[in-house]
């Protein structure tokens, strides 16, 4: 009886996901493999090959951003999870605080900071350094990604690490494990689901972003998201090619995610996304 009702409650979400997730995905696939007249074609999908360098650049920059996020986020999440309750809540608040502000606004702020006459260069100028070319580079794009998506790395890591019982660590220490061993044999394996969720949640939006590269990359560092944007709102309006690129991007992300899943093997899957 109970299960009958609970499935009833999930109905709104089922309908929602059918209309706004499954159907659009199907449309993307259909558009990618058809011509304007509706005939089947592979032309658009094979045309995506011409943009390989854009694709590689997107994956490359997103990967760098993800690694940086992991390097910054992991220690922070660990330290946070070992703090007393009040400090934990304060830290969490500080991480969430920037997210209250609009995404565009935050990225726009970086424009003023990194500009040639911007805040950082003015600061360097006081010490007789610079000016440095910071904006409109790939480094600025990576910075934008790290800044905007870092909370998405910290939060899943933090939530999984609070579940690691202090007694587990103490037990390992009692059994003679040194700090390094405790970390590599206990903490990392137990936080693996958090790591893979964090990587997914940073990598996926980074690889498909278009506004960060436009604002901080100066338009000359085209990413795959910009390319898709061009097909739908650009000069040569071509939703078919746009869908084909989106499809390739989706397959690429799926591939990355399944490689990532290999790491988890048969371990606990709690807190994981895929």
């Amino acid at each position: 009886m109970k299960s009958k009702y609970s499935s009833l409650f999930s109905l709104p979400y089922l309908i929602w996901s059918l209309i706004f997730i499954i159907v659009p995905m199907g449309l993307v696939v259909v558009f990618a493999f058809t011509t304007e007249g509706g005939q089947f074609t592979l032309d658009y999908v094979s045309q995506v090959g011409e943009y390989t360098n854009v694709l590689v650049r997107s994956v490359w920059l997103a990967a760098i951003a993800t690694v940086i996020c992991l390097l910054i986020g992991y220690p922070l999440a660990y330290i946070m999870s070992r703090m007393p309750g009040f400090q934990q809540r304060t830290m969490l608040m500080l991480i969430m605080l920037p997210m209250w502000m609009n995404f565009l606004l935050r990225t726009y702020a970086w424009m003023t900071i990194l500009e040639k006459n911007g805040l950082l260069n003015k600061l360097f100028g006081l010490f007789g350094l610079g000016p440095f070319d910071m904006i409109n580079t790939q480094g600025a794009v990576v910075l934008g990604m790290v800044y905007n998506y870092l909370p998405f790395m910290i939060l899943p890591l933090y939530s999984i690490m609070t579940k690691i019982d202090n007694r587990t660590i103490e037990a390992a220490q009692d059994l003679g494990a040194n700090t390094k061993n405790v970390f590599t044999r206990i903490v990392i394996p137990m936080s693996m689901p958090g790591i893979s969720t964090g990587i997914t949640m940073v990598f996926v939006p980074s690889v498909s972003t278009f506004i960060i590269s436009r604002m901080l990359g100066g338009g000359g560092n085209l990413l795959i998201g910009d390319l898709i944007d061009l097909q739908f709102l650009g000069n040569a309006y071509n939703p078919h090619l746009g869908s084909a690129i989106s499809l390739v991007l989706m397959v690429l992300i799926l591939l990355c995610m399944s490689i990532l899943n290999q790491f988890n093997g048969d371990e606990d899957r709690e807190g994981m996304l895929l």
Binding site: E50, R57, G220, N221, L227, L230, N235, A236
Partner: peptide, 16 residues
């Protein structure tokens, strides 16, 4: 022509 222009445009922007 507009397809060609769009292609050249992407080529230009993604040219590294």
């Amino acid at each position: 022509t507009s397809t060609l222009m769009d292609k050249l445009w992407t080529e230009l922007l993604s040219n590294d």
